[in-house]
Amino acid sequence: MNELQLKVLELLKEDARRDAELIATMLDRSIEEIKQVIAELESDHIIVKYATVVNWSKVDDEKVTALIEVQITPERGRGFEGIAERIYLYPEVKSVYLMSGAYDLLVEIEGKKLERGCLVRIE
């Protein structure tokens, strides 16, 4: 990764809607050059996609986010992965982190209100 690519990534990370012309001005490069850098970053899947950061709490105040600590026994040959996969396939699960420390997985889930929140049953 070269310095120009890094600078382009940083500018896009702050605001994905910045176009090649603006970035070219800010980095003192030609528009063509910036377009090519972006195209390469996209085709290399360094830029995976352009998403929107939504403040859902303003859209739906029923929504809650919960972090759940999970302790599991690693499976022979597959370690934590099999169980982690079973967990992250639930649509309510937003992310699963492998943790060091007192527990193994940190699961972030999103659901409606607390009483219905925990739809994921861990076996």
């Binding site: 603006l22 001005t25 800010m26 980095l27």
Partner: peptide, 9 residues
């Protein structure tokens, strides 16, 4: 670096 980018803009 960030000031410089904005200066050009």
């Amino acid at each position: 670096e960030s000031y410089n980018q904005r200066r050009r803009l």
